[in-house]
């Protein structure tokens, strides 16, 4: 091998680690270049969405299931943290962990019965879960504050550093995203991850390969619920105000659209999808009014032409084209 080939091979071998390092560096430097609080506020929102989408992509993209109710777990995290810190007076970090554990338990209780379903039935069941959660948030005034929301949630802090402006929140939120990103990337490159792709491909085949499909689906569901709960807690502490409208079914569908646009079964695509869908309304004014129409339209178009999602779909198409060309070369 020449030194150039060696260098390229090194990059190929460590592509995941290098990409993570590169992105981390870019994120570290970003607030130094861009100090407009409005822009940072947007990227922070991307971070929160990305956290939910990462987990949801494991469940939808890798394990091949569907959930239209992840805003419920997002909401449980947010309201859980709000109630624990304000009403019960717990320290925020402790509250975040306890809430995440409770949400994991709730997810387990929900997963055992509803993951017997699949396809449309699973979509309906998770949608129902979201409706129930939304109604509870709206109606249980004494605890949740009802339609007017819940305010006065304290900021997070480490030592003397309080995360109360966009600049500091940027580092906090993106640290969470990068750690989750690495954990997810590790997961999908392991035997467990391959087991999940097998479940998405064909459950009978997955079982024949030794995958406990039922447990695998439940575990991923819980993992995605915990990530959504953490994102919710961060959301609550970030804006110090939560209201039921942030956790309705349209939030859930937006999350699914982010997964689909980014690409099913693509961890990097999750980041792209979260960023694109969060930023779209900023770029085009008419989105503000017709947001749901446009999101629906995007969903339909992507599913029609690239059913695997924008990023994954394009990459797959390119890979297949290349392979077919190579096949032809071999044949001739």
């Amino acid at each position: 091998m020449t030194s150039k080939q060696k260098f390229l091979y090194f990059i190929y071998l460590h592509r995941t680690g290098l990409s993570v390092t590169g992105l981390s560096l870019a994120l570290l430097l970003f607030p130094l270049i861009e100090d407009n609080p409005y822009t940072l506020g947007l990227t922070n929102l991307i971070a929160i969405n990305a956290l939910v989408v990462l987990g949801l992509n494991l469940f939808i993209g890798y394990a091949g299931q569907i959930s239209l109710g992840h805003a419920a777990f997002f909401g449980m995290g947010a309201y859980g943290s709000a109630i624990a810190t304000v009403t019960l007076g717990m320290p925020p970090w402790l509250a975040m962990v306890i809430v995440a554990i409770l949400v994991a338990l709730v997810a387990l209780l929900i997963a055992v019965p509803i993951l017997r379903l699949s396809g449309h039935y699973l979509a309906m069941a998770t949608l129902g879960l979201n409706f129930v959660m939304y109604t509870v948030l709206l109606q249980w005034d004494e605890v949740t504050g009802g339609p007017s929301g819940f305010s006065g949630i304290p900021y997070l802090s480490i030592g003397d550093v309080q995360f109360d402006d966009e600049f500091r929140l940027h580092y906090l939120l993106w640290s969470f995203v990068m750690v989750s990103l690495m954990l997810c990337l590790n997961l999908v490159r392991s035997g467990v991850g391959r087991g999940l792709s097998a479940v998405a491909g064909d459950e009978v085949a997955a079982q024949a390969l030794g995958v406990n499909t039922r447990n695998a689906k439940i575990k991923v569901f819980i993992l995605s619920a915990v990530l959504a709960s953490l994102a919710g807690s961060l959301f609550a502490h970030c804006y110090s105000f939560v209201s039921p409208d942030s956790f309705g079914i349209f939030t859930s569908t937006d999350m699914v659209i982010m997964v689909v646009v980014g690409g099913m079964g693509s961890i990097w695509g999750s980041l792209f999808g979260a960023a694109l869908i969060t930023l779209l309304p900023e770029w085009v004014d008419m989105f503000e009014t017709y947001k749901d129409f446009v999101h629906g339209g995007i969903l339909v178009l992507v599913l029609m032409f690239l059913p695997q999602g924008l990023v994954t779909g394009l990459i797959d198409t390119i890979k297949i084209k290349l392979a077919l060309r190579r096949r032809k070369n071999v044949a001739s």
């Binding site: 391959r194 792709s197 024949a208 079964g265």
Partner: peptide
């Protein structure tokens, strides 16, 4: 019943799923 979206190598690797470890936590770390 092969998995069309995975590469050939990954398809073979799914045959070794049970030897790749069971714990999701360990896989993430």
């Amino acid at each position: 019943k092969i998995f069309p979206r995975l590469t050939v190598l990954e398809n073979i690797l799914t045959g070794l799923t049970s030897e790749g470890g069971d714990s999701m936590l360990m896989a993430m770390l």
